[in-house]
Nucleic acid binder design. Structure first.
Lengths: 344, 344
DNA sequence: TTGTAAGCGTTATCAA
DNA sequence: TTGATAACGCTTACAA
């Protein structure tokens, strides 16, 4: 299909290319209504489609947003299989497209940073999910690109952040278990790193324990990776080595599902033998059996919010520094995996 | 961050911009080894990063691939929540990135085609999932862009196709149920359209029935949408209105999960009361309870294969017509949702 | 083997 | 209000 250029439009309309460009970019006030009409007409008749590469090159915006999601541990694949990320991406894409932006979705290779991609593609902004090493963020700052972080407690006012109150979530989950009469509450979590999401949830877990006057027992925390497989393993261990544990707070729904499976393998059932609560409320949480009690965050909404803030930052001004982090709400969703221990 | 241009590199290296471009594009043979070395050195020292917009504009390739996935019914969101698509995307992205390509992931708005996007972005190719109206494909052809279709039985040699033998899959699934002694086998499916994936599986279902000398009973096919929710509904109906049905072939794992849930709601359990087999083997199939017996396709592999073929088509030649469709293998995965009816 | 220079489609500057 | 025209960074004839 032959490409119609702005020049052809200008000829057809009998005006200059500059005039066409103005009209196309809504620079009204710079051109007469008559010109606008002529151009519009020519654009329609010719079926003109702008070339974003040229726009981008001419120093304008690329209307391209980079979206980075973590990879599987073998670094071979995106972690998109994890519903948490795919739902986030859904929210982001919808919002971006609504404003005429496109999204380049990718992971970032081991060792590589994201600087190359952002420069190569003249990205207008980026949304980063997952946690990376310090240098990754430092690099990113060099590009002076509006950036929204999800999943990160990086303490740097350069970045926009759209998060949830993970500490509160951990607290709510644990408290719900305690409120149902459980006193031996395990935590199954990914590796707890300083200022990480896991640490916050862990802190919430401890706060709930403390508030209830319960003893914090390190033997009850199972820490490895946030994956279905590890959940399974932890479930088995709990079933076999810790018959005293009656409830588990799993740090994500995927982990919770694993725990339930591991428990079942060892012949212990949820919620009859042990109660389980998850975190996230991914869509399978209500599809599985039994439906999972969990701490719900509106993941899709969080995605659109991230896009929203990014778009805002892009249009607002080139140099407006981020405000406060946006904190999305969390709610407890009671389904069928928590059993009341002491009926009163 | 300041942009280093090819011109600066050329100055630093003491050669022409053309020479730099040649080296950058591996046009060896056009330049002396000495020049290559000088350029490489300058590139490294300066930290040169190419501008893909400029490349794209200069008539070269954009190294951008469009990936289209279907939307939810309300057309508000990508269907990425469906693990089938997210796994596909994982496979695609990994393969593309390996070759230095990026992927623009998007849905396509109601009424809108994809022609605009492909022209705007100077896409080098596209991978289309889902089914669209005729005009969508016609438009696409106009752009003369290599295109890989997944999920489509469009009969047009312009397009590359990476599929599975859905008829065979339907046959295998149904046969497995029959082999286990079931004679009243229901089919729960999305809407059966001519030359669609659903029709093929339906045909396989009928073939297995016929081969076993079983009567095809239209009352046993539940046709609506391929979603968890519809599966649930069908499951309920089967439990309440069709106590004679002992086995269900669900046209996708998500649907199967729904069926199991609907059945359970009505007090009927899988596999004790009724057997269920799914299709796809999405990752939750082995995580749910009980683990789902299903027809496995290597979804991620199919994604990389699609990318592979596209890349091939892009480099091969500008005008090579697609060969045969690539057909990915299908295998039966026996887990715990099918019970043997007549022990022998 | 190398360098010069003409595009590629837009935007933006600056006269008119 | 308008319209030439110079960037933008790169590729690629064509000349040297």
């Amino acid at each position: 299909m032959k490409r119609i250029t702005i020049r052809e439009v200008s000829e057809k309309a009998g005006v200059s290319t500059a005039a066409v460009s103005y009209v196309l970019n809504g620079r009204i006030g710079k051109v007469s209504q008559e010109t606008v009409d002529k151009v519009r007409k020519a654009v329609d008749e010719l079926g003109y489609i702008p070339d974003f590469s040229a726009r981008s090159l001419a120093g304008n915006r690329s209307k391209l947003i980079g979206v980075v999601i973590p990879q599987t541990e073998d670094r071979k694949q995106l972690l998109l299989q994890n519903p948490f990320y795919s739902e986030l991406v859904c929210g982001i894409e919808a919002r971006l497209r609504q404003s005429g932006y496109h999204m380049i979705l990718s992971g970032v290779d081991k060792g590589e940073g994201y600087l190359d991609t952002s420069m190569q593609r003249n990205l207008d902004g980026a949304i980063i999910m997952g946690i990376y090493q310090e240098s990754f963020y430092e690099d990113l700052k060099k590009v002076r690109l509006p950036i929204v972080l999800i999943d990160s407690y990086i303490h740097d006012s350069y970045f926009h952040v759209v998060g949830v109150d993970d500490e509160l979530g951990g607290y709510l989950a644990t408290k719900h278990l305690i409120d149902n009469g459980h006193t031996a509450v395990a935590l199954v979590t990914g590796s707890i790193r300083k200022d990480g999401v896991m640490e916050k949830r862990f802190l919430g877990y401890k706060r709930a324990l403390k508030e209830a006057g319960l003893f914090y027992n390190p033997d009850y925390v199972f820490e490895d990776s946030v994956s279905y497989e590890y959940g399974q393993e932890a479930g088995r261990v709990i079933a076999e080595k810790h018959p005293d544990i009656t409830a588990v707070f799993a740090v994500s729904d995927m982990v919770a599902l694993g725990v339930i499976s591991g428990l079942a393998e060892a012949g212990r059932h949820v919620p009859d033998d042990v109660s389980v609560i998850g975190f996230d409320d991914i869509s399978v949480a209500r599809m599985c059996h039994p439906p999972l009690t969990t701490i719900r965050q509106d993941i899709v909404g969080r995605g659109s919010m991230a896009a929203e803030r990014l778009l805002q930052a892009i249009t607002d001004s080139e140099e407006s520094l981020p405000q406060e982090p946006t904190v999305m709400p969390l709610t407890l969703v009671q389904r069928d995996t928590v059993r009341r221990l002491t009926p009163e």
